[in-house]
């Protein structure tokens, strides 16, 4: 049988392209080091208490004051909102790094595909609907901004792959605004509550539900825009 393996695909890196492996001494040292790590990990795991106390009880106790009914969302957006804010910033920094490397490649897609157009008409509205559903679900069930943003970002990827491009008018500052919206609104609300004497990101229980939904909606948009922009592979 002729060697037809993956000839139609780029990046078939053969084994000979790889550098020579480490020598026997280096292998022995590596083995010893790995064994040491294994012993260390095993000792650490075995020394853990069999039933970790965790923070589940504390979260359940404070859940009514969080503004949401789902404990995961309460932790992510309220109790540990600081972590989530910085995660959004990290995602944004990743995009900045990609943009600083290279402009987006000249994206000339092959001829328009009628099947892809039909798929778009069917899938894109459904995906936007599911993204909204996941966002709303985050208040009381598994779901939330990150999942909704990923689905919405995937919609952007699909539209990009089928040859649709952002209009020139949206390409500039509106795109930047969408990318920043999540971090900006999150920080602004976090700072605004400080006017009432509360610490950073400590929402008043009465309005916590609405504030969390607003932050999550903005974060969804920003995450979606960031993921779709990452797919462009460069500065638009």
């Amino acid at each position: 049988m002729p060697d037809t393996r993956s000839t139609s695909v780029p990046g078939t890196v053969r084994a000979r392209a790889l550098p020579a492996g480490p020598g026997p001494t280096a292998r022995l040292i590596l083995l010893l080091l790995l064994a040491a790590v294994l012993v260390g990990l095993a000792t650490a795991v075995l020394s853990l208490p069999p039933v970790a106390p965790g923070l589940g009880a504390v979260v359940t106790e404070h859940l009514p004051a969080s503004g949401v009914e789902h404990p995961v969302t309460a932790v992510l957006l309220n109790f540990r909102g600081y972590d989530t804010l910085l995660e959004l910033a990290v995602l944004w920094l990743a995009l900045l790094a990609v943009w600083s490397l290279t402009p987006a490649p000249l994206a000339h897609e092959p001829t328009a595909n009628p099947m892809l157009a039909a798929l778009n008409q069917l899938l894109a509205p459904l995906m936007i609907l599911v993204a909204g559903y996941l966002l709303w679900n985050g208040g009381h069930a598994p779901g939330g901004a990150f999942q909704a943003g990923a689905v919405l970002g995937a919609t952007g990827v699909l539209l990009h792959l089928s040859g649709r491009r952002l209009p020139r008018a949206v390409d500039g500052w509106p795109l930047r605004l969408a990318l920043l919206l999540g971090v900006a609104l999150f920080s602004l609300i976090g700072l605004a509550v400080m006017a009432g004497g509360a610490p950073f990101l400590t929402y008043p229980p009465a309005s916590a539900g609405g504030l969390i939904l607003a932050i999550e909606a903005a974060a969804t948009l920003s995450i979606a825009a960031t993921l779709a922009a990452l797919f462009l592979g460069g500065r638009p």
């Binding site: 290279t102 402009p103 987006a104 490649p105 000249l106 994206a107 000339h108 460069g234 638009p236």
Partner: peptide, 8 residues
């Protein structure tokens, strides 16, 4: 796909 070519 021209690598790194400027789209704009």
């Amino acid at each position: 796909r021209p690598r790194g070519s400027d789209a704009s």
